[in-house]
């Protein structure tokens, strides 16, 4: 084996060991209000990581900060060995990070198919037909509605569309912001099982932000708990589920 080949191999193993996404000491502000106070967390390749926390804890802010808007004021964000702390949102997206943002943000006047096309724009639509097929298998409900306008679909369908649109860019890391918000338990189950499938079959790395702590922690390999802009606890999904503090704060009111 040549020296160059060994070098590549060394690089690759190092990349495998280093987390895919590494957030270190990140703080972010809205004007003068500090929303993130030195957040540390990481996501390794192939993992599902959940971030749970109460409303207003800063979960969505963290997700958007990873996406460069608002940009982190201190700390660093590394993705696949690259420092993305100061990159523009669209450039970050082009590194194969996809997101289903808070509130879904689908294009409501456009048809489902067109929404998916927007997701595939990153590759110039090269894999569109093939990926459309995959999405139809993953979310059969979308298949029946390809020509329906996005805005006329139910909340659950819109959430599926938001995830499918994100997946159309063939991401390495998928970030989901509260995919279960406002959805019927059955739909939540469908969506979460689709995410688990993607992770198990295709090795997709997933970072999921949720208020629905029970489902998220059951799904995730590891989890973090965020309170007012800082990570206060972390552990495997099981550990956090069994943790009395987590139970008291986030799992009261039954395991829906």
């Amino acid at each position: 084996m040549s020296v160059a080949g060994i070098n590549v191999l060394v690089e690759e193993t190092r990349a495998l060991q280093a987390p895919l996404l590494d957030v270190r000491g990140v703080s972010a502000y809205y004007g003068s209000i500090q929303a993130l106070k030195g957040v540390d967390l990481h996501v390794k390749e192939g993992e599902i990581v959940a971030l749970i926390g109460a409303n207003g804890a800063g979960k969505s802010t963290l997700m958007m900060t990873i996406f460069g808007q608002p940009q982190a004021r201190t700390g660093s964000i590394t993705y696949a060995g690259r420092d993305i702390t100061r990159m523009a949102t669209h450039e970050i997206a082009r590194l194969n990070i996809a997101q289903s943002p808070e509130g879904r943000r689908i294009f409501s006047r456009m048809s489902v198919r067109e929404n998916l096309q927007m997701g595939a724009a990153l590759h110039g639509g090269r894999y569109f037909a093939e990926d459309l097929e995959r999405m139809c298998v993953l979310f059969p409900r979308l298949k029946e509605r390809l020509d329906q306008r996005g805005g006329t679909m139910s909340g659950g369908e819109q959430q599926m569309l938001a995830i499918a649109r994100a997946l159309m860019s063939r991401p390495r890391l998928l970030m989901l912001d509260e995919p279960s918000l406002g959805l019927a338990p059955l739909i939540v189950k469908q969506i979460f099982s689709a995410v688990r499938d993607l992770n198990e079959r295709e090795g997709l790395t997933v970072f999921i932000v949720e208020q629905n702590a029970y489902h998220a922690l059951k799904l995730a390999h590891r989890g973090y708990v965020m309170v007012t802009g800082a990570v206060t606890m972390s552990g495997t999904g099981r550990e956090l589920l069994d943790n009395p503090q987590v139970k008291a704060a986030y799992l009261e009111g039954g395991q829906h």
């Binding site: 996406f67 523009a88 669209h90 450039e91 294009f107």
Partner: peptide
């Protein structure tokens, strides 16, 4: 329709 969604899909 949505500028933020566009950016997060990699559109400049």
């Amino acid at each position: 329709e949505d500028e933020i969604a566009c950016r997060s899909l990699g559109i400049d």
